[in-house]
Design a protein around this nucleic acid. Structure first.
Length: 552
RNA sequence: GGUCCCAUCGUCUAGUCAGGUCAGGACAUCAGGUUUUCAUCCUGGGAACAGGGGUUCGAAUCCCCUUGGGAUCACCA
């Protein structure tokens, strides 16, 4: 039991689960799963101002969608439980106080009464003098009486950890190797905040120890924090877990992948199109004004998403639920994310979670940072989509439509054909609906825009596509039955007799007439899906539309 | 700025720890081909060891320096 691997993923629920966090979670999970170990989910909600229940629930859903289930932690569907909880830090204050008392008893923790403003001044000064700021231990000079007096007065205070002067600041990282920093780099950091909550450093050390975590796998932004953690472990008499720090994930342009990217995209769009006020029903005017008043004022993710939807802007996918909404398969996202910083060798790239669990190991993690390449993710998704049986594709597409495209989910008995017609040609679920929007539009609502390919198909050439349409409509209308086969045969004979055997000469005008664009599923499928009445009606409207336009 | 970390095709990477096949794969790209649109699909091509010093018979691989990139320096995690 004691030597069994125990890993944990410990997000702070201040937003959405982004791809970097997701990768960390997957690694922790796969590592434990492959060693008959235990994977723990712990919610680090000691930041009272920023944590939210909604975000917490979002994390559960995102992890669940990826197939990352946890043995211990908050209960959610089949995950959670465990007897070293609670697994929310905000509910573990007693534990932290117990541990804190140990430190106070041996004189390794002390009260400090400087205000944040005072400390900021000192930091500014240090920066101006181009030296690193370190806490000056001023509070250590206070006499017991002074401290007591301050406390009696009700002065706000924090508690700092007195880092032993002879502390050894070195550890071996499973990914990076030996790391050490000079003693002068580490000052007496705060372990309890004025609001009575422990800081991240204190809580993480206590929880990892009390929860029996053996392997800490986390982002490289924590590498320097690790020194704080090991001195705390030393003082508290805890065993040191193994550490593995993961390099970060970046955008293709080298910038850090963050929710800011959404903000940037929206700002650029609003500026370019000189949009003065928010579209109805997405965000408040006050919020809009505030947002535009300064680049530092970011929209919340949900606000950004709703604004983007209202404006018809597509935002870069950053969070796990963005990829879900964009129609990616969770197993593909997991696969791709794993590859950003780890590989199984032997030129193997595409694998499932069973393979990952069997082969994942810390010693094959890559040290250097990776850039997120959407094109490759898309290619992987296409491969996985194509590998799906038609039944699986249909049911998963339907499931996706229920959540993101209800109009398509309502296709009813036409849905199987809709799925079949889009299986081979879609890179994502969203692809399928984006080139089939004509299916859920009213016949009367369809409009045509004279783009280049439209003109080419309808108006160019010795015999224009438009001129063929009446005859084609006529023949389609006379068909004995309305099936894929009969339609294809009809169009083929039209092509033979009217267009010198060129099927494209007939199919494209028909496609544009019924779909309003030169892109749609194979023409036979398109027409069957639409039904005869709509097909004929649309062709007639199309003819009328272009006749009136061309004559003008 | 201090400290720490990193460095193979455009991108993700194999190869590095135990120096020795024209540095392998995937995505992207380019050139052909198939196809009623889009997307697929097939064939082929180009493409990298950041630079400089060492060690060695031999260096992508070991050491040092330079350069470049990143992280961190909170009463956020």
């Amino acid at each position: 039991m004691t030597n069994k691997v125990r890993t944990r993923f410990a997000p702070s629920p201040t937003g959405h689960l982004h791809v970097g966090g997701a990768r960390t979670a997957i690694y922790c999970w796969a590592y434990a799963r492959g060693r008959e170990g235990t994977f723990i989910l712990r919610i680090e909600d000691t930041d009272q101002k920023r944590s939210s229940e909604q975000a917490t629930f979002g994390f559960f859903e995102d992890l669940n969608w990826l197939g990352v289930n946890w043995d211990e932690g908050p209960e959610f569907q089949s995950s959670g439980g465990g007897d070293v909880g609670p697994y929310f830090q905000a509910q573990r204050l007693d534990e932290y106080n117990t541990q804190l008392n140990k430190l106070i008893e041996c004189g390794l923790a002390y009260y400090a009464f400087e205000t944040p403003d005072e400390l900021n001044e000192k930091r500014k000064l240090a920066r101006a003098e181009k030296r690193a700021y370190r806490y000056d231990r001023a509070a250590l000079e206070l006499t017991e009486e002074q401290v007591q007096a301050n406390l009696d007065e009700g002065k706000p205070y924090v508690i700092r950890f007195k880092v032993p002067d002879d502390a050894i600041l070195a550890f071996t990282d499973e990914v990076i190797g030996d790391v050490e920093i000079p003693r002068s780099e580490l000052d007496d950091f705060v372990i309890f905040k004025a609001d009575g909550f422990p800081t991240y450093h204190f809580a993480v050390v206590v929880d990892d120890a009390l929860m029996g975590v053996t392997d800490v796998v986390r982002g490289q932004e924590h590498l320097n924090n690790t020194f704080k953690h090991i001195v705390l472990q030393e003082a508290l008499g805890f065993e040191r877990p193994r550490y593995a720090h993961l390099s970060l994930i970046f955008n293709p342009d080298g910038s850090k992948m963050s929710k800011r990217d959404k903000d940037k995209t929206l700002r650029a769009y609003v500026k370019e199109h000189q949009i003065e006020s928010p579209p109805d029903g997405c965000i408040e005017h006050a919020e809009w004004d505030n947002w535009l008043s300064s680049k530092d004022n970011q929209l919340q993710t949900d606000e950004a998403n709703s604004l983007a939807k209202a404006l018809g802007v597509s935002l870069p996918e950053i969070n796990v639920d963005d990829f879900k909404a964009a129609g990616y398969l969770p197993e593909v996202l997991m696969n791709y994310l794993c590859l950003l910083g780890w590989s199984p060798g032997d030129d193997i790239e595409q694998f499932d979670s069973a393979f990952l669990i069997e082969h994942f190991s810390l010693d094959r993690i890559v040290k250097s940072p990776a850039k997120f390449d959407r094109a490759k993710l898309l290619a992987f998704n296409l491969d996985a989509m194509q590998a799906l049986s038609s039944e699986a594709f249909e049911s998963r597409l339907l499931e996706w439509c229920h959540e993101y495209a209800p109009a398509f989910a309502a296709l009813g008995e036409r849905f199987p054909l809709f799925a079949k017609a889009n299986h081979e040609r879609s890179k994502t679920f969203r692809d399928a609906i984006e080139t089939s929007s004509f299916l859920v539009e009213d016949d009367e609502a369809l409009t045509w825009v004279e783009t280049k390919p439209v003109k080419k198909a309808l108006l160019k050439g010795e015999v224009t596509g438009l001129s063929l349409l009446p005859e084609v409509a006529q023949r389609l209308g006379e068909l004995a039955d309305w099936t894929h086969e009969s339609i294809d045969a009809c169009l083929a004979s039209c092509a033979e007799e009217l267009a010198g055997g060129k099927l494209g000469k007939v199919a494209q005008p028909v496609r544009i007439a019924v779909a309003g664009s030169p892109v749609s599923p194979p023409i036979g499928d398109t027409l069957v899906l639409l039904g005869r009445d709509s097909t004929i009606k649309r062709i007639e409207r199309c003819i009328a539309f272009f006749m009136s336009h061309c004559d003008a």
